[in-house]
Design a protein around this nucleic acid. Structure first.
Lengths: 203, 203
DNA sequence: CTTTATATTGAACAACGTTCAAGCTTGCGA
DNA sequence: TCGCAAGCTTGAACGTTGTTCAATATAAAG
């Protein structure tokens, strides 16, 4: 066999299998929650024997991690789609954009609740592979770019930290807000709080 | 047998067993993480047969929930101990107290990382029992009380929401900040960010 | 002390992720 | 066109898991 064909037929099939597997996993996660994912169900979904899963994916954690990164990719695309067209030259515009990013995050979380939750439930023992770290850090640019307009005199390091703080704060409000076991806050009120939070932090 | 003795010997033993079980569970969680809890290990720890666990606790979820509430109780006690002695008559004092609460939360999370994480990992299908909801809502008073001094003209409802927002924001910063899979931020810098966040939100 | 009711036990069960020897398919050289 | 080696796929089997329940041991009551 050739050592490493750039695109052999089997490699293509593996890619297709991987995508089918991820799609099936996402479907099941959305329907019944991430902890209800069963290897046997997924194998049946994509028409593969039980053991065959482990030719597509290293193990179940690997699968969850890939789903997570896929979700991050969709979130990234949403940020891009939702805010790229907004100008960012003045301070006020940058602030509006930051608010838009935060509200888009809230919307995404609400509309993709199980997948969104998964992003923070995945616990890994071994260090994250680089492609996973990249996908995660890439998201911060949607906060960092507007923030650099709002805080033009800040050092890059201070800016990175502050961007993380703002993102984390919004994340926290969304996270606790969507936790149903406490008193439910109406989504519009939550959105208002998120906007207030961003504007208060940027004054 | 009497229908319900106020304090029979067996009921006392059950209480003791429950406490031993919770303590053993906490120990294991702190040592090896919450998802490494095994029914057989715990049964051995407290000197009970495997099936005996289900006389003490309904099932594993029930156990985790009880550990969670215990942790919330310790957090509550820490808030009390750390901030009750601070006066709260002036606005500035109330603000200082709010900052103290937030920093205490951060410290608690850092020093009890596995137990603290568990509080947000427990996923319940059935609605939370009242005693669990109580313990959770009780924590908010440590934010609500100082905040009512800072926002004296706000309606009780607006105050509740704002308290939740502030708590959630701080929680988010702590949560993401302690996530090790991203770039580690020095604790002192994190603490600074938390204090900044509170003060920015209360201006 | 006998009897009755409760508490405890641990073997058994179903469901889970993961492995691996065996069979099957595939692609290439003759 | 055929045959053969190399990899892929399979599904039975394994070790763990949480949970159950008939049997046993213990405690309470008359």
């Amino acid at each position: 066999m050739p050592a490493k064909a750039v695109s052999s037929a089997t490699a293509d099939r593996r890619q297709a299998q991987l995508e089918a597997l991820l799609t099936a996993a996402e479907k099941r996660i959305c329907e019944t929650g991430s902890h209800a994912l069963k290897a046997r169900d997924l194998a049946a979904d994509i028409g593969v024997a039980l053991g065959g899963l482990y030719n597509i994916v290293q193990d179940m954690d690997d699968l969850l991690l890939r789903v997570t990164v896929r979700t991050q990719g969709r979130l990234d695309a949403l940020f891009e789609r939702e805010t790229a067209h907004r100008p960012m030259t003045t301070r006020a515009q940058a602030l509006d954009r930051l608010v838009a990013v935060a509200l888009a995050y809230f919307t995404f979380a609400r509309e993709n609740l199980p997948l969104w939750r998964m992003m923070f439930e995945v616990r890994i023992t071994t260090p994250l592979p680089e492609w996973a770290v990249e996908a995660q850090l890439g998201l911060f640019r949607h906060v960092g770019a507007p923030l650099s307009v709002i805080m033009p005199e800040a050092s890059p390091e201070a800016l990175t930290i502050r961007a993380r703080t703002l993102f984390s704060a919004v994340h926290g409000v969304v996270y606790i807000g969507l936790e149903e076991r406490l008193i439910a806050v109406p989504p519009q009120k939550l959105a208002d709080e998120i906007e207030w939070l961003i504007r208060a932090g940027c004054r």
